[in-house]
């Protein structure tokens, strides 16, 4: 039991994390490049065209993974935020700091590709559809978290404040989604649904699945790298960072 706790505690040590994550980053980066190359070539060139939308549906292979990441990164941030507030683990704060910009750009990418896809598919760039509106709100929640970090600088107060914002946002997100759904049904907009056709042939959804995995690998590589830089910055006065930098120089 004790050894297992020790194993767990190691992960809270920035120095140990720095070494371990350094070993992971190349693997994640290679996996991301490989998976994304496979998914994009397969999806954009070889997957069969949609019988209604033709080739314009192929933006789906970027839109879907971006939307998936936009949601799951926020969920991950909320969990990390609880860890910050309850156990005060510094690394969880670093994770939120690194993940928020990535999540925000994924949300922006999902909204952007959605708009580009919406023009040929529905004939409009933007529709006040429930899911679109909720995604837009989520984008603003991301901006709030990033703004909190930015306003306080690299301090403990900023980390805890941003964590509280994360938790409040995560608590509110279901309520916002629900109320937007209600509002949507009240307003009765043009009828179309965003749900992908469920009877999609395997050669159409398999590239999408590979793309999602590729985006996750990219997320891991980017976040680990940014966490490493932040660790170096925060621990810049410690011996091990000085030795590391001197050795590299």
């Amino acid at each position: 039991m004790k050894s297992r706790w020790n194993w767990l505690h190691q992960w809270a040590s920035p120095r140990w994390f720095y070494r371990r994550s350094g070993a992971c980053i190349p693997w994640c980066a290679v996996a991301a490049a490989g998976l994304l190359a496979v998914a994009l070539v397969w999806g954009l060139a070889f997957a069969p065209p949609d019988y209604q939308q033709g080739d314009s549906f192929r933006i789906f292979y970027i839109h879907l993974p971006a939307a998936v990441l936009a949601q799951s990164v926020f969920a991950g941030m909320a969990v990390a935020a609880l860890v910050v507030l309850v156990w005060r683990v510094k690394l969880a704060d670093l994770f939120i700091r690194a993940a928020a910009p990535f999540g925000a750009s994924m949300t922006a990418l999902a909204l952007g590709t959605g708009a580009i896809w919406g023009k040929p598919a529905w004939g409009t760039w933007w529709e006040w559809d429930a899911r679109l509106t909720a995604t837009l709100v989520q984008f603003f929640l991301y901006l709030g978290v990033i703004g909190m970090h930015g306003a306080f600088g690299s301090t403990r107060t900023g980390g805890r404040a941003a964590a509280l914002v994360c938790v409040l946002g995560a608590l509110n997100l279901p309520i916002i989604k629900f109320s937007v759904n209600w509002w949507h049904t009240l307003h009765q907009p043009a009828t179309f649904t965003l749900t992908a056709p469920p009877a999609m042939p395997a050669e159409m959804w398999l590239p999408a699945l590979v793309a999602v995995l590729g985006f996750y690998a990219l997320f891991a590589a980017v976040v680990l790298f940014q966490m490493q830089s932040e660790i170096l910055y925060r621990e810049r006065h410690t011996d091990w960072v000085r030795r590391l930098v001197d050795g590299a120089a």
Partner: peptide
């Protein structure tokens, strides 16, 4: 949360307005 940041920061609006949306929707409807 935004107290240490001083007066008149737009961050407060950015944080608060998304949270206000459900109330706004139900109230106005």
């Amino acid at each position: 949360l935004t107290l240490p940041l001083g007066r008149a920061n737009l961050l407060l609006a950015l944080l608060v307005l998304p949270l206000f949306m459900p109330v706004l929707i139900f109230g106005s409807s």
